[in-house]
């Protein structure tokens, strides 16, 4: 158990906790938050792995991947928030299984 293991294991734990939240929380804002924490967990794993090298400086490749990942997370979060807001504006509820999201009365949720 080295120091970097603490980071990588914490990252894995964050990923699993937010995966549970993503599945069980129907509210869209909760799902978007869960996705963000999930990305945070992945980044933490990468930052931990970057420190495992024998050289004095950390491995630049995982760092570059985290930077790319942050930008993709920002993009997906912005688009997801815009979609969630539109869904709320159309249906009055920020959940996916609201009965009239697609204006089909028979497609009722529980």
């Amino acid at each position: 158990m080295s120091q970097t293991d603490v980071y990588t294991l914490a990252g894995a734990a964050l990923f699993v906790i937010s995966l549970y939240g993503l599945i069980t929380r129907p509210h869209l804002i909760h799902k978007i938050l869960a996705l963000n924490i999930m990305s945070g967990g992945v980044f933490l794993v990468f930052v931990g792995i970057a420190r495992r090298v024998m050289t004095p400086d950390p491995d630049p490749l995982p760092h570059a991947m985290v930077l790319t990942g942050i930008v993709v997370t920002v993009s997906s979060t912005a688009y997801a928030l815009a979609l969630a807001k539109r869904i709320y504006s159309e249906t009055g509820a920020a959940v996916l299984d609201a009965p009239d999201v697609f204006e089909r009365p028979e497609a009722g949720g529980d």
Partner: peptide, 21 residues
């Protein structure tokens, strides 16, 4: 899934030097 992830993370060899060199 968490158990699998932890095993995968711990399975990465301790002394690898990555692509840094």
């Amino acid at each position: 899934f968490g158990v699998l992830l932890v095993r995968a993370v711990l399975a990465i060899p301790e002394d690898h030097s990555g692509l840094a060199p």
